[in-house]
Nucleic acid binder design. Structure first.
Lengths: 322, 322
DNA sequence: ATGAGTGCAAATACTTTGCATGACT
DNA sequence: AGTCATGCAAAGTATTTGCACTCAT
């Protein structure tokens, strides 16, 4: 897994060198290797120190020059955390994000917030700018420092995996809410045929939720230490809640009576909404594991609806199949 | 006006010097004066060039040192716009804000967005950080550059005044929406006494709107060139719209019948909501003209309600007073 | 008169450039 | 063989510090 990724990035670098008539050297190889195997936010000096351990006679200028190439081909990304040093972080398959820096212990939290991006986009458009890029740094005091707890040793997480973890968690939360909605709607529905479809939807959704959970378990299994990683994808629960209504909102004073057609329409609308939402989410990110989670989820939502809809078209008797 | 502000800032600087056992010199005076009279985002070199015009033998070190003092006492604020230079902008009575920078012509738009701040606050809290400060820089291409229009000469606006202008505009927009709401509610209301109160509310609100407009006119009169200044306070219309409902939402299928008591309750709720919203807004800013607009508006909302409410308590016949 | 302020030059910190030598294709 | 890369030293940029002299309190 890790090896595969390293290889991909190495390939990318060599391709970049080839395309620009640049030469492959041991120094570049070593600098790339050490950069890729070190998570976190390295200054040139930091990386130089690490590189020097393996090759005493390498010069810091070469580190500067190599980092410039790595930035140009998208493997590294320059960041400024406010201490006057240019720092570098992994860029390849690592989504754009922002930083919260503890002013005391200099711990750095990385996060991405689609809501924040949305608000920014609106503002930029309002001023008739075409947005190119943006940077947000937030400085604060972390809970550990505030409570005078010992500062935990800095850990670099694989943000690719953390992002995938959070994407799965987000999908699961949406699924859980949808299940609650359909279950409650089924219980309230006075129309027997409509109720049967709602119950079928609940089953399909539960299967989907179980699949998501098993994906998450696999991921956590493979990526040891992932449990400790802070949330990377900051998702706004209110957006989810807005998307899937309370089942009680279906009732308009009278008893709920949703026939098969109404139920299918409702289910299609919700599936489409969720699918669009996740597709839109995916568009915000470049090729990453988290993005793939979103795309798959969007497709599965539509697939789930089709399953339910196909089943509803079967003869009425088919309420206990197989 | 301008002189008064300059004097205030000068006083503040001298007080700072006194309190720190530092000495007043011609060089410091000159640097302060030129800084205060120059809007925009000055680098040390920029300011040095301006200062040198007036005093050939001043040294750049003195500019560095004086800017440090000005920053310490809150007259100047360091900013980084991504070009590697430390730039300085006015800080005294100038609210915290963010920057949108055109990557082509380097035009800078300053803006503040309460919604953005809210989202950020939520995120920071979510990671258990106590927020200290944050910086957001957005890079993009401005409309002028995109359409290959000549770049208008850079203009420095007095952001204190621009902020006040936008605060007034925001208040007026809210007021306009409220008037629409009450007018429409009056037209729909079948209850005569309730309608009379609604009509009175409309009158009071129209008076308030006229006052706001006259404040805005005064401001624009005094601050020539303010028309051209881009919006500084970026307010989200949806928040306003959420706050004041559509009058049609009052109807629940049947004809609208709101008695005096119901109308007063409604008016009080809305006035309180608007007042709280603006108070909360004001809390986000340090002592500025814009902040005072918010506070005054918040108080006037409550005052308006009291006027309406007192009037409603008069004998019923009092529908054509004086 | 005391002590901070000033302006010069020198130092510092980070980064880039020039150049002779060495390494890749 | 030719060209790019490397590592050294040197230069560059933004800012700070040391110091002798000046000026404000």
């Amino acid at each position: 897994m890790r090896e595969k990724k390293l290889k991909e990035e190495t390939e990318l670098f060599f391709a970049y060198l080839r395309q620009n008539g640049l030469k492959k050297t041991n120094q570049k190889d070593l600098i790339l290797e050490i950069f890729l195997n070190t998570e976190g936010h390295l200054s040139v000096e930091d990386l130089y120190a690490l590189v020097k351990k393996r090759d005493k006679k390498i010069g810091i200028v070469t580190v500067f020059r190599t980092l410039k190439s790595l930035t140009a081909c998208g493997i590294a990304r320059e960041i400024a955390l406010g201490d006057g040093l240019t720092r570098f972080e992994h860029s390849y398959h690592h989504p754009h994000h922002h930083h919260i820096v503890c002013a005391e212990c200099h711990k750095v939290i990385e996060f991405v917030s689609p809501e924040l991006e949305r608000v920014q986009d609106e503002i930029v458009r309002n001023y008739h700018f075409r947005p190119l890029r943006h940077r947000l740094q937030i400085y604060g005091i972390c809970a550990d420092c505030r409570e005078h707890r010992p500062v935990p040793e800095a850990r670099g997480y694989d943000s690719e995996k953390v992002f995938a973890r959070d994407a799965l968690k987000m999908a699961m939360r949406m699924k859980t809410r949808a299940i609650e909605f359909y279950r409650s709607a089924a219980a309230r529905n006075q129309d027997a045929a409509g109720r049967a479809i709602l119950e079928n939807i609940v089953k399909v959704q539960e299967k989907h939720l179980a699949d998501l959970r098993s994906d998450l378990d696999d991921l956590m299994e493979k990526g040891k230490g992932l449990e400790g990683a802070p949330m990377f994808l900051h998702f706004d629960l209110r957006e989810l809640e807005d998307m899937i209504p309370e089942a009680s909102s279906l009732e308009t004073g009278q008893a709920l009576k949703l026939g098969p057609k109404a139920v299918l329409e409702l289910a299609q609308k919700l599936a489409q909404k969720a699918s669009d939402y996740f597709k839109n989410f995916a568009d915000k990110f470049h090729e990453t594991q988290g993005r793939r989670v979103f795309i798959r989820f969007a497709e599965e939502e539509i697939g789930n609806y089709q399953k339910v809809s196909a089943r509803a078209d079967e003869p009425q008797s088919a309420s206990h199949p197989n």
